[in-house]
Structure formats: structure tokens, C-alpha cells
Write a protein that binds this DNA or RNA. Structure first.
Lengths: 341, 341
DNA sequence: GCGTGCGGGGAAAACGTTTACCTAATCAAC
DNA sequence: GTTGATTAGGTAAACGTTTTCCCCGCACGC
């Protein structure tokens, strides 16, 4: 049996702990902690140097569980994305992650698949991890969401407003304004009735896109053919395909179509191509999001470009504002841009 | 009236703790813990029921930091993806997340952008979080990676073999075999020389794709025009575009092109379209990955379909095998499929 | 001479779990 | 009736941090 010292310098797990660093630097663990966290006026320059040397020598990095337990807050920022298969969401997630990292935070990314039960499960899980802030990248109404807000969980809504609470912290674009611009552009480019293609409008983003487009189109004296597809799997690609199919049967056939998402536009385009129609020569198609791949694979698609690169910093800033000053009403509207092809 | 007991039932943070549950159920915290974790033969059916009732009443969920600290292992599975902007990676990440969730694990997803420093930073961060396993969804050689293995970090390599250690736990497809099939298909479909379009082959996946294609094409007596683009940003779309440009200038112009990724194929297609060429009528283009959107937006593209839906379960299984039996050599080869369009 | 403030640093108490021991009681087997 | 195993449950010690009190020494103003 090894008659060990009073305390082994590194834990049984084999990792260096703060105690090991303290021992090597010849100081107390309190001092090490203060040096690591940069507490001012609590250590001489010489002590700081000694501690940092020990940290380097031992390859020490503080364990997050210990800190989280003590602080009651982790450095994890949970991002609950509605659908990772959507390239726009994935692109936003990537920029968010980078921006958070620069601020010393770590992104925890999940895919809720737009399902309320999954969203609720994740909300609880993230609470258990004492997430710094939970970012809902496309929230869906759910019981767990209703429960989370009064409980004091810090939530940030992105793209879609909080269901039932338009005042909740939000980062996104002016969906309605953008849809108005789409209507104006389509009226300018084609004649005759315009088509609107969408699924169930239960999210604020979809709702406002529809609203803006309908209002402006009517105001400009154009008829609207509403080709909504409710029910089914809710898959945007399929909605687009089936919606376009319905439109092909309508007379007169609309020469301009507004789809409430790029994915829907992809689906619609597929059906139109199958029917031998050229986009945009025979029919102009507008999507929404203008995901980063469009320039390469959908040069036929007009869309509303959301500034995905700006989302990262904007969300990271909002996250920090939210954790510093709980009362501050965060609301960031990013600038979109019409892309016509 | 609150008669201050010896201990408040819920911590100052306002959340119910295991102590609160114990008090309400009239048992010790040890018993609550055992019930929560399903330890057999340590609680009567009646006690279990009482504890569960208390848990429901208080809306209790164990805090992960406490558990992690005690166990020395968190339920986080870190996934370090090389490039989230690639729809295939995003799709794989989504299936991984779902499969892990079914096994009670949580995915922590990061984007390394194929940069060694970032990968190293994340490896350390995940170690600090005591990640269950770290999954490298496209690893890149780096000093931190070399350091992590002897240290005992549990690593799982997906798609690309571990740089410098082909024996390390791996989940992926048979890249070389797939590339052989591509060569055979192209030889069958077009005549004349074939083109190979790729970037720097520092990853095993790219390397084996090149190897398989080159070997088989030569064996079949066809010439190869190698249009590699090294340097630059390394962006696949751009590589494809510039590579196609080089091919347009070559005589004779190849009637079949193999791009080592779908993204490259997108870029190439864009350049070919600009030149007025039709795919696949004028030139057959093969990509690799066949990401889920191809059916909709790239009906011109032939590709190797990786079974992204199978990755989730396969990776989750590997993660569990790795954490149960450290010695077991994990190696899963998933079945790919040639998709010709 | 005396308070007073400040720079520098240590001891120890949490934070919320899990689990190694212990103790009783019950029950089957001899 | 004594053993020995098994079930049921409690006590208390970790796990690795941060932070609140302390203490000490020294300079400063009076």
C-alpha cells in the first residue's frame, strides 16, 4: 500500500486539478482560482507568473462541472433549431457558434424537428445543464415553453417570435416588410394573378410573410391564388411540390409564385421543371431565406436574403445582454435584402 | 407562516434539489438518487412510488453538474463537424443527435471549419466538459489530436480515418470502393478521357476516393485529366468552379467528371452552365455524398449516396461500445449506393 | 502614537450528486 | 436456534470549483 502524501497532487482521474496547480506553484487553491479568473488586486505579478507556469506545466484546464456547480451557471448556450436539414438554419447555427466562442461560450445545438414534445424535452434538458441562455431558432408553441418563462429561464427567440408573447427577446428580420417587397417585385416583373404557396401558418414568421404579401398584392390590384398545403408531413420540399402541382391545374396559370421558404421553392421548381416550364422565363419563383447555396445550385431562384452572417454576432450580443441585464428588452431586427435572379 | 426549518427544501437558486424531493417523500437523499437511477433491490415498491410522486410534484430533474462532478463523466457527446455548411454533414449531425437522445445522451455540436487550431481548442473544451465521447465528423491532423489519444480521451472518427492512426475507432463508408464504382459507371456512360476534380487530398476520405477512381480508370484504359485546385480558401464550391474552368480549356474536353464532393460538383455545374453546357447531356458529372437536397435541386447530378440516416444509430452504437469496453476495436463500414441521374 | 485602508493571500464552506459503508430486519436452510 | 444471504434504507464522504470571511503587514494621515 502506497503511503501517499497528505494529498495526491492530481485526482484519481489522472487529470490535474486546481489543487495540483496550487501545490506546484506553492500557493493556495484560492489564489489559483483568482489568477485563472483574473480577479484584480489579489495576487502579485510574481505569484501570477508562478501560477501560470504551473498551469502550463501541468496542462491544467478548469473542469466545467465544478465551476457550474458552484456558480449555478454553465458556459453552455443551448440552441434549439427547428430543422437542421434546412441549410439556412445550419448556416446560422455555424455563425452563432463562432460568435459565441469568441465570447467564451459554447454552443449546444439540438434539432427539435418542429415538434413540441421534443422542444419541451430539450428545454428541460438544457435547464438541467444550467444553460446560460436557451436560444430558440424557430420556436413552436408548447406547454414546456409556457412553463419555462415564468420559471425565469432565459430564452431568446430567433426568426420566429415567441408564441403568445410578442414582447419576448427576439432577433430576426422584418418578415412582413420583406414580403411586401416580394409582392412589389413580382407585380413589376409579371402580369396576371400571383400565387402564394405555403404550409400551415402557425409560426409568426410564416404568418407575417403571408400577411405582408397578401396585403400588398391586393393593394396593387392583383388577384392571389392561395395554394396552401396543410397537413401531411409538413416537409417544405413536399409542400412546394404539391403546391406547384395544384397551381399547374389552375387557370389562368400564375406567372409569379411566392413560396414562404426556399425549400418550398425547391419543391415547386422541381414540379415546374417536370412540367417543362422554365424558371424564371416561364414563371418567376420567389423563395425566402436565400440560403448560401442558392448562388450555386438555384440560380433560377429569387429570394429574400437573410443576413445569416450577421445572426451570429447579433445573437451572441443578445445572449450577453440577456445574462447581464435580465430586464433589458432585447429586440434586434436585421436587414434583409431582395435578391432577384 | 414559514417556520425556518433546519434546511430549506429547495436551494436558494429556486430549483428543487434532491434534498427537497427526499424531504417531501420522507426518505433520505440516497434513496431518491437510487430511485432516480433505477438501482435494483434498494427500495420497496411503495417507496419508489412515493419518491416518484414527489419528483412529479416538485418538477424535479437532477442537475447534470452535480452528477458529472461525482461520476467524472457527463452525458454530453461532443461532435466536432468539419463544416456545417455542408448539407450532408448537417444531415448526419441531425440523425446522430436523435439516435443519441434515444440512448439518454446529449449532442454537443461544433464546427471546426477544418481548422486544426479550432479543432484543438474544442478537444480541450470537450475534455473540460468531461464529454462521454468525442466524435470527429471529419477530423484534421493537429497537435491536440495527437495529444488526446495517449491521454485516454475517447475518440470516434467518422468519415475520415484518424490522421496517422488507421486503427482508431471509425464509422464511415468504403470510399475507395465507391470511387471504383464511379469510375466504372463513367466509363460505361461516356467515351474519351475522364476528369478528376479535387482539392488537397489531406483527408483519408478524399485520398481514397482519388485512389479508387484513378486506379480503376487507368485499369480500364482511360486517360485521366487531373484538375486539382490546391490552396485558396479551400471552399469546395469554389474549387469546383475553378476546376471546371480549367477543364473547359483542355482539349479534348472530357465528357465525364468526378468531383470528390457534391459541393464541388455544384461549383463545377455552375461553371459548365455558364458555358452553355448541359448536364448530363453534354457532360456527365459525378459528385460524392448525394446530400438529401439533390433529388430536388440537383436532378442533373450523379453521386454516391452515403446512408446518412444510418449514421446516427451506427455512431450512437459505437459511442456506447466505446464507453463500455474501451478495448473493443470499433469499425463500422456502412453501405453506400450509386445514384445515377 | 493610533486608526484606516489596501495589497496579498489562506481556510473553509458551499454547490448537488452518487456511492461505499453500515445497520436492521426478514427469511430460508440447516 | 444459529447462520447467512438478501432486501431496504440511512450517513457521510467525496467530486472540483468559487467566494466569503479572515489575517497580516505596510503605508498614510493625523
Amino acid at each position: 500500500m502506497t503511503r501517499a502524501h497528505s494529498r495526491p497532487p492530481s485526482s484519481r482521474s489522472g487529470r490535474p486539478t486546481i489543487a495540483a496547480v496550487a501545490q506546484r506553484a506553492g500557493v493556495s487553491i484560492a489564489t489559483v482560482s483568482r489568477v485563472v479568473n483574473g480577479v484584480a488586486n489579489k495576487a502579485s505579478a510574481e505569484t501570477i507568473a508562478r501560477v501560470n507556469a504551473a498551469i502550463r506545466d501541468l496542462d491544467y484546464r478548469p473542469e466545467s462541472a465544478g465551476r457550474t456547480l458552484r456558480i449555478g451557471q454553465s458556459r453552455l448556450v443551448a440552441v434549439l433549431a427547428a430543422n437542421l436539414a434546412n441549410p439556412t438554419m445550419a448556416a446560422i447555427a455555424a455563425t452563432v457558434e463562432m460568435a459565441l466562442r469568441e465570447r467564451g461560450l459554447v454552443m449546444l445545438l439540438c434539432d427539435t424537428h418542429d415538434r413540441p414534445e421534443l422542444q419541451d424535452e430539450y428545454l428541460l434538458e438544457m435547464r438541467a445543464h444550467r444553460a446560460h441562455v436557451t436560444v430558440l431558432l424557430g420556436a413552436v408553441a408548447s406547454p414546456g415553453l409556457d412553463a419555462a418563462r415564468p420559471r425565469g429561464d432565459r430564452l431568446l427567440f430567433v426568426n420566429r417570435l415567441a408564441p403568445g408573447d410578442p414582447q419576448a427577446p427576439f432577433v430576426g428580420i422584418d418578415n412582413k416588410g420583406a414580403a411586401v417587397e416580394v409582392a412589389e417585385a413580382l407585380v413589376r416583373r409579371v402580369s396576371g394573378p400571383l400565387a402564394l404557396l405555403h404550409g400551415s401558418p402557425w409560426s409568426s414568421a410564416t404568418g407575417m410573410r403571408i400577411e405582408g404579401f397578401v396585403e400588398r398584392t391586393r393593394a396593387l390590384g392583383r388577384a392571389i391564388i392561395d395554394a396552401h398545403i396543410f397537413g401531411g408531413t409538413g416537409d417544405h420540399l413536399e409542400i412546394g411540390y404539391r403546391g406547384a402541382e395544384a397551381l399547374l391545374a389552375s387557370a389562368p396559370r400564375p406567372a409569379g409564385i411566392f413560396c414562404t421558404s426556399d425549400l418550398m421553392a425547391y419543391g415547386a421548381h422541381r414540379r415546374l421543371s417536370d412540367a417543362g416550364l422554365q424558371v424564371p422565363q416561364d414563371v418567376v419563383v420567389f423563395g425566402f431565406d436565400d440560403n448560401p447555396l442558392n448562388d450555386w445550385i438555384a440560380p433560377w431562384l429569387s429570394s429574400v436574403r437573410v443576413p445569416y452572417a450577421d445572426f451570429g454576432p447579433a445573437i451572441a450580443d443578445a445572449v450577453q445582454a440577456l445574462s447581464l441585464d435580465h430586464a433589458s428588452p432585447v429586440r434586434t431586427i436585421l436587414r434583409h435584402q431582395l435578391v432577384q435572379r
